[in-house]
Design a protein around this nucleic acid. Structure first.
Length: 282
DNA sequence: CGGGTTACCTGACGGC
DNA sequence: TGCCGTCAGGTAACCC
């Protein structure tokens, strides 16, 4: 589900709600069954650690503790929420848990952070602060919103000799992180580039345009609190608004907002893809 | 290696 | 009502 704007929205919401240096009373896994099979039911090493802040790399959330990092990927349907009044003495009787809750982090201030993920495509790992992260993230490309590395020249170079459709390439997290299926279609529309165009057919000018459009659509989506398609929610539980501004995603058969042509769709590398045949000719 | 397909899961929705 | 097929924002394993 969540792409970069949704994860960024969750991160900002969690940081607002984390009190200054909330201390963890206990962290426990309610189910061993999210994607990277949690090998234990309790994580005593997290007890007593403060949550200093929550940051984001690519589509991963990083809970920075005193000595540890909690790494959380939301997959398609993952979400974090706060519940009040954690029953510290008798967790099993907690009435606040729902179906598909997998992780519970009780804070000493009495609140509890709960991770829920019906489809269980999410990931969760506990890493040592020193060293673990670089290895874990070695295959991730640059952050699209950071100045400097993700430039038109960079994308042009990365797409040379690549025959795959440009849409697949901008969703490749080794080339650039954070772009998923919705924002790939949206960014290509803004740039006037057909998603089926082979990577090596991209001109330098088009690559520069596309980098600009990716930045624009991701940045705008963050301002609107992300896109709520079915179950994405901000950390406070409210919906995003950017889904109301999608120009091509899920618009097959409807008129293009720019030119009234009928929006096309086709599955590319297993993912539904949408574009305007008249506006996207590069 | 590069590109596509499938698997991993549950739930929502449409057609019959 | 209910059954069945299809689809869903991601990643990783697998196959050619």
């Amino acid at each position: 589900m969540p792409e970069l704007p949704e994860v960024e929205t969750v991160k900002r919401g969690l940081n607002q709600q984390i009190q200054k240096f909330s201390k963890i009373h206990s962290l426990r896994f309610l189910s061993p069954a999210i994607r990277n099979d949690l090998p234990f039911t309790k994580a005593p090493q997290a007890s007593g650690q403060r949550i200093l802040k929550i940051s984001r790399r690519a589509k991963y959330l990083l809970f920075e503790l005193d000595d540890l990092l909690l790494l959380s990927h939301l997959g398609m349907t993952g979400s974090w929420r706060f519940e009040n009044f954690c029953q510290l003495s008798d967790l099993d009787e907690s009435p606040k848990l729902r179906d598909h809750d997998h992780i519970e982090i009780c804070l000493e201030d009495g609140r509890v952070l709960v991770y829920r993920d019906p489809r269980r495509f999410g990931q969760f790992e506990i890493l040592q602060k020193q060293g673990g992260l670089a290895r874990r993230f070695k295959n991730l490309g640059p952050e699209p919103l950071d100045e400097g590395e993700f430039t038109g020249d960079y994308l042009f170079n990365e797409t040379r000799k690549r025959k795959a459709p440009i849409k697949s390439l901008i969703m490749d997290q080794q080339i650039v992180v954070g772009v998923g299926n919705i924002y790939a279609s949206e960014a290509l529309f803004l740039a006037g580039i057909n998603p089926n165009t082979a990577g090596d057919k991209l001109t330098l000018k088009a690559a520069k345009n596309l980098v600009y459009s990716i930045r624009e659509v991701l940045g705008d989506a963050i301002e609107f609190g992300g896109s709520t398609i079915s179950d994405f929610r901000q950390a406070g539980g409210s919906e995003g608004y950017f889904q109301n501004i999608h120009l091509v995603y899920n618009e097959a058969g409807y008129p293009c907002a720019e030119c009234d042509s009928t929006i096309s769709s086709r599955v590319i590398a297993g993912r539904s893809t949408y574009w305007c045949p008249k506006c996207q000719t590069l």
